[in-house]
């Protein structure tokens, strides 16, 4: 399987990363190298092998469904490039 420039552009869009047109070709080459390197995984017999979901044999802990934190919106937005009245501000989404 080989990625072409159009596919790389599509992946970049899915990842929301702007990639300049002139870099797509080189990037496709690099990604194809990596994909052909990982191709060897198909040699491994994985019939009846469960995919790993956790390295430690432990169940996820549960906790009470309670609010235990919060109430400081100014602290939450303090690093925002743009904030207004305790909210994050973004470019207009709805016309």
């Amino acid at each position: 399987m080989s990625l072409d420039k159009a596919t790389v552009a599509k992946i970049a869009h899915l990842a929301r990363i702007k990639v300049p047109e002139e870099e797509l070709g080189h990037l496709a080459g690099e990604l194809n190298n990596i994909l052909s390197f990982v191709e060897q995984l198909n040699e491994v017999d994985t019939g009846n092998v469960p995919p790993m979901t956790s390295v430690a044999a432990q169940k996820l802990r549960r906790r009470q469904d309670q609010v235990t934190d919060g109430g400081y919106p100014q602290d939450i937005v303090r690093n925002a490039p743009e904030a207004a009245e305790g909210y994050f501000a973004v470019p207009k989404v709805v016309e």
Binding site: V38, L41, N42, V44, T46, V49, P50, P51, M52, V55
Partner: peptide, 14 residues
């Protein structure tokens, strides 16, 4: 093809 297979190989490594 990729992610699931990789996680299975990971099990074999474990």
């Amino acid at each position: 093809a990729y992610y699931l297979q990789a996680q299975k190989v990971r099990t074999r490594i474990k």
